[in-house]
Structures are given as structure tokens and as C-alpha cells.
């Protein structure tokens, strides 16, 4: 990889980090604003949708980054996503069954609290897939 390509990679990583950070900040700001909010419905909906543009920006940078990966890195990403997808499916299916069996408390197991597990599954998938080619 040339030094020009490396510096372009670094710039891309910085852009992705800024977009992802903005997305998380927007998400948590929206959560705080929506908590016990008595604003009009349209305002609450607008606040709930506030993180979406930041998410779209993050998605664009992620896709651009994926296109620049070499063939082994792409394979690792594919294996990681396959692992994360299947673990997520089993996780949600089990949660659904448990909800029927013991009625899980909403405050701990709603979508609001479950989604952070998904990136954890993805990064776990990357660790597992990377180890194979180390």
C-alpha cells in the first residue's frame, strides 16, 4: 500500500469515526429528549428520527470502506456478518420465546435495550473470523 493510499485510508477512517460518533451522540440526545417528553407528537417523531441522517452518513462511509478492503479482509467481514446474523437471529428468537414464557420486563428487554448487543455480535464475529487467518 502506498503512503498516499495509507493517508487516504486514514482520512476515510477519521470520517467514519466522526459520522459514527455523531450518530451515537444524536441517538443518546434523542433518548434523553424523548424521556418523559410531553411535546407534540410531530416533535417527538422528529426527535426520534434525528439520528437517521447520521446513521445514513455512517452507512455510506462503511460501504465505501468495504469497497476498499482487499480480498482477505472482505472474506473476514463476510464471515463476521454471517456469524453476527445467525447469533442475532438465535438471540431474538430466544428472547421472543422467553417473552412468552416469563414475560420479560420491557425496561430491560425492549428494542431500545436489545440493539446494542448487535454490534457486539458483529465485533465478536470479526475477532473469530480474523483468528482463522492470523
Amino acid at each position: 500500500m502506498t503512503s498516499q493510499a495509507k493517508s487516504s485510508d486514514r482520512a476515510q477512517t477519521i470520517r467514519l469515526a466522526i459520522a459514527a460518533l455523531s450518530w451515537f451522540v444524536a441517538y443518546f440526545v434523542a433518548r434523553v429528549l424523548l424521556k418523559d417528553s410531553e411535546a407534540a407528537t410531530w416533535v417527538r417523531v422528529a426527535v426520534a428520527l434525528m439520528p437517521v441522517p447520521f446513521f445514513v452518513a455512517t452507512l455510506i462511509f462503511v460501504v465505501r470502506g468495504a469497497r476498499d478492503l482487499d480480498e482477505l479482509q472482505r472474506r473476514i467481514q463476510l464471515e463476521a456478518l454471517a456469524i453476527a446474523f445467525l447469533v442475532t437471529m438465535v438471540f431474538l428468537m430466544t428472547l421472543g420465546l422467553l417473552q412468552r414464557a416469563i414475560s420479560l420486563p420491557f425496561e430491560d428487554w425492549s428494542y431500545l435495550h436489545v440493539w446494542p448487543y448487535l454490534p457486539v455480535f458483529y465485533f465478536g464475529g470479526i475477532v473469530i473470523a480474523s483468528r482463522r487467518y492470523r
Binding site: A5, D70, L72, Y133
Partner: peptide, 18 residues
């Protein structure tokens, strides 16, 4: 650098894991 891939890729090919 010559191939335009990561060092990890070169290593994985050398060790015949990929």
C-alpha cells in the same frame, strides 16, 4: 505494498491459511 493488499493477507497466503 507491491500487491496493494494488507500485510495480514500476505501472511495468510504465506502460512497457507488463505
Amino acid at each position: 505494498e507491491r500487491l496493494g493488499v494488507s500485510r495480514q493477507t500476505v501472511n495468510a497466503i504465506e502460512t497457507e491459511r488463505y
